[in-house]
């Protein structure tokens, strides 16, 4: 488990200790450090329009229960676990009250070549559609491995499984995405 390494910046553990001591600025630094990755993860889990709300809930919950945070694990893993649980809760709620969620294309590839851009847009749209076919666990594993570059050990902590099972989930996810794209 590795903490984010930043030259000259305090570790997560040091910032948590400062926050527990009443330093509100420490919380701000931690939010700024981890919010981007958490927001990417939340977006990839299907939360398109309310990413910030979920990310905020993630941090509020995390800081609200820091007493239960085990120093042995990384804050990053813990934050992603909370974010994943929030996404699952919201997905369940949405299943009860289904709504049409449009695919967010606000950050698709830009290209000076219109044809290349169109092909890229098409590829990305199909890729998103393929990912939406994955199970929640497969999507989480795929995202954390591909987009965040996490180890299977870290991923296993987030999705509450074993390292070996996380690896199997990843390869199954890749296979399913390829099958969809080949259709």
């Amino acid at each position: 488990m590795t903490e984010p390494t930043r030259d000259g910046e305090p570790s997560d553990a040091a910032l948590i200790a400062r926050w527990r001591g009443g330093d509100e600025r420490a919380a701000t630094i931690l939010v700024e450090r981890h919010a981007p990755a958490v927001s990417r993860f939340v977006a990839s889990m299907g939360e398109r329009g309310e990413v910030e709300e979920v990310v905020q809930d993630t941090f509020v919950r995390a800081f609200g229960s820091l007493d239960r945070f085990r120093e042995a694990s990384s804050l990053r893993t813990w934050l992603f676990s909370i974010a994943r649980n929030l996404c699952r809760d919201r997905a369940r709620a949405n299943r009860r009250a289904p709504t049409v969620v449009a695919i967010d294309e606000t950050h698709l590839l830009s290209s000076s070549d219109p044809l290349s851009a169109a092909v890229a847009t098409e590829t990305e749209s199909r890729l998103r559609a393929a990912m939406e076919r994955l199970t929640e666990t497969q999507r989480a594993v795929f995202t954390l491995r591909v987009a965040e570059g996490w180890s299977y050990r870290e991923i296993a902590d987030v999705v509450e499984t074993t390292e070996g099972a996380a690896r199997v989930h990843y390869h199954n996810a890749v296979r399913l995405v390829k099958e969809y794209l080949d259709e």
């Binding site: 701000t28 990413v51 941090f59 998103r128 987009a147």
Partner: peptide, 20 residues
């Protein structure tokens, strides 16, 4: 997939920190 998933949605970290 990295291109698609690597894009970071815009979030207001100051607002989140204030909420915390």
């Amino acid at each position: 997939a990295q291109t698609v998933l690597g894009a970071t949605p815009s979030v207001d970290t100051a607002r989140i920190a204030a909420a915390v």
